[in-house]
Design a protein around this nucleic acid. Structure first.
Lengths: 229, 229
DNA sequence: CTAGTTAGTGTATTATCGACACTAACAAAA
DNA sequence: TTTTGTTAGTGTCGATAATACACTAACTAG
């Protein structure tokens, strides 16, 4: 079966930049290509868009097929259209970035006969296509957006300590933050629920756990409240 | 002549949201469709992407063909992919927004047998396709971005008064700004060149003209300077 | 020369930001 | 059980930035 059109059409793909956070640093998820072009090279998960799905649905599907990840925060990043970005033919790619709780997706078994692995954003191997460019734009966007939108919580488990939250901002913004000032600011925003639970199994004083109060945040933004780190 | 592909492909278009500013308010440029679907309805300028051009080139070409506008500030907005956004077939559209000096593009003659006209963002007619959605996202993006990037200057003539500049922010941000505080803030940024020229032909004291110092702004951003209104 | 209109300027109060250091709690090791 | 090591948790003060606010100067038109 084949499809005919009066004018030439570009192929359309989606690519996903998946961010995760652990105790050391910010990581992204890459897959190893098992077909040409760039066979064996690491690349962003992604693939061709079908006609019966929106771009976002397509990104979610590819992400699940290639890495097993589902139900993630996903947002459109940019559409890349350089003429020579794919050596086979004209391919235009819509990039998305995703934020996941890395602890839930620890070791990613190869789902589709490929390998998948987490890499620190500070030591990314050479990537296929223009994926390094996509990745660097995604990283920039995350850094910019995390300061005025509470995206960060997507990278943390539901219950987290203030230390984890601060660490998140330190890693993403790549600078140290004063502990007292940070806690002052967060508490002033009043968007966390203080739990009567504490972290477990640590060899020192256990820190209190908190939850992000999504409801309250939504209500507050309607009244012109401004989240800002 | 026709083109065959193994899998079905969506058609790809670009659409442009062109902003201009005059003495009253913020305006956008619309064209009247002369073919089905939505014949006679107002719509964003745009059209099909060719295989030998990037999306940005495509947006620039369509803009010139349909409205005569060239050499504008142009930035990608978002890619729209709802399944039913075009009644004919599956069409995915990459939206751009453009900022132009309205005074240079006053009355837009119909270039392509269509009519083109400026509309106040506060009184937009019913638009074709999902163009109202695109427009409203563009407006939101402009409002957000103008506060921390000096986009506004793209909407003003090269030489402008501080009153014009303030008016720009008042119109886009939709709130009044204190004259003295505004001037204090702008002068503290030190990104304007004070000219020895004054506005002409006004029935009151003439205001001094200024130019945006693009060079200096670039140098400053490299050193971590933060533009913020 | 008078009326009308906008340009251009400073200060005082309030809110926000940023630097900074100690005690409390707990687990592990001695 | 005592000591050691590690992180949790908390407040103040000075500097800086944000805001509110009103008058005189300059020019044109009638």
């Amino acid at each position: 079966m084949s499809y005919k059109y009066e004018y030439a059409r570009a192929a359309l793909t989606v690519d996903c930049v998946v961010f995760g956070l652990d105790e050391e640093d910010l990581k992204i998820l890459l897959i190893q290509r098992d077909i040409e072009p760039f066979e064996g090279r690491w690349a962003l998960p992604g693939g061709f868009v079908r006609l019966d799905e929106t771009l976002e649905e397509s990104a979610k599907r590819e992400l699940e097929e290639e890495t097993g990840i589902k139900k993630v925060f996903l947002e459109q990043l940019y559409t890349f259209s350089e003429l020579e970005r794919d050596p086979r033919e004209r391919v235009i790619s819509v990039a998305y970035y995703a934020l996941v709780q890395l602890s839930n997706h620890r070791v990613k078994a190869a789902t589709d006969a490929r390998d998948a692995a987490w890499f620190s954003v500070n030591s990314i191997p050479s990537l296929a296509f223009d994926h390094e460019k996509i990745l660097s734009l995604a990283h920039e966007r995350l850094r910019g957006k995390v300061r005025y939108q509470p995206l960060g919580f997507e990278l943390l488990p539901t219950k987290f300590t203030l230390r984890q939250l601060q660490h998140l901002y330190e890693v993403i913004l790549d600078r140290e933050i004063d502990k007292r000032n940070f806690r002052k600011k967060i508490q002033a925003m009043d968007i966390l629920i203080e739990l009567d639970e504490f972290e477990q199994g640590v060899a020192h004083r256990a820190a209190r756990l908190y939850k992000f109060d999504r409801q309250k945040y939504k209500r507050m933004t309607k009244n012109g409240f401004n989240f800002e780190i």
